[in-house]
Amino acid sequence: MNRVMFPPLMSGHQVTGDEDPFLTACMKAAAGCDSGLIVYNLAPDTLLAALVFAPEVPLADAMTMLPVCAVGFQNALGALAPPEVAVHLEWGGGLRVNGASCGRMRAAASTSTPTEIPDWLVVGFELPLWPASADMGNTPDQTALYAEGCADVEAPLLIESWARHTLNWVNRWEEEGTKPLHAEWRGLAHGLGEETAQGDVVGVFVGVDEQFGMLLRDENTTHLFPLNTLLEDL
Rank of each mutant, 00 (worst) to 15 (best):
A31Y: 01
C33L: 01
A25V: 01
A54V: 12
P55R: 00
T24Q: 10
L51Y: 13
P21Y: 01
F53I: 06
T46E: 13
F22I: 12
D34M: 06
M27W: 12
C33Y: 08
E19L: 15
G32F: 04
L42R: 02
D18V: 07
P21W: 00
A50K: 08
A30Y: 08
D20K: 03
G32M: 09
L51R: 11
D45C: 10
G36Y: 08
T46P: 03
A30G: 00
F53K: 08
C33K: 08
A30L: 14
A29D: 05
L37F: 09
A50N: 04
C26P: 13
L23Y: 05
L48N: 05
E56L: 09
Y40S: 03
F22G: 09
K28V: 11
V39K: 03
D18F: 10
D18Q: 03
T46Y: 11
G32T: 12
V39E: 04
G36W: 07
L47Y: 00
C26A: 13
L37P: 03
L23K: 03
G36E: 10
L42C: 12
L42E: 05
I38V: 13
T46S: 03
L42M: 13
V57N: 04
L23M: 00
A49E: 03
V52R: 09
V57C: 02
A29R: 02
E19V: 10
A50Q: 05
A43C: 07
D18E: 00
C26W: 10
I38E: 07
A43W: 07
M27S: 05
C26D: 07
V52D: 05
G36C: 06
K28D: 07
I38T: 13
A43D: 14
V52A: 10
E19P: 04
D20A: 06
D34Q: 04
C33F: 02
D45M: 01
K28I: 14
N41A: 11
M27C: 14
P55G: 02
F22D: 15
C33N: 07
K28R: 15
D20Y: 02
D20E: 06
C33R: 05
A50C: 10
A49W: 06
D18L: 04
L37R: 12
T46K: 06
Y40M: 09
P55Q: 02
C33D: 08
G36N: 12
S35A: 09
G36F: 02
L47H: 05
A43G: 06
S35M: 15
A50P: 01
V57D: 03
F22W: 13
L51M: 09
A30I: 03
D45L: 08
A50R: 04
P44Y: 11
K28A: 15
T24L: 11
D18R: 04
L51F: 02
E56W: 12
T46C: 14
A31M: 00
L37M: 14
L48W: 01
A50F: 05
L48V: 02
V39M: 07
L51S: 11
T24R: 14
P21I: 07
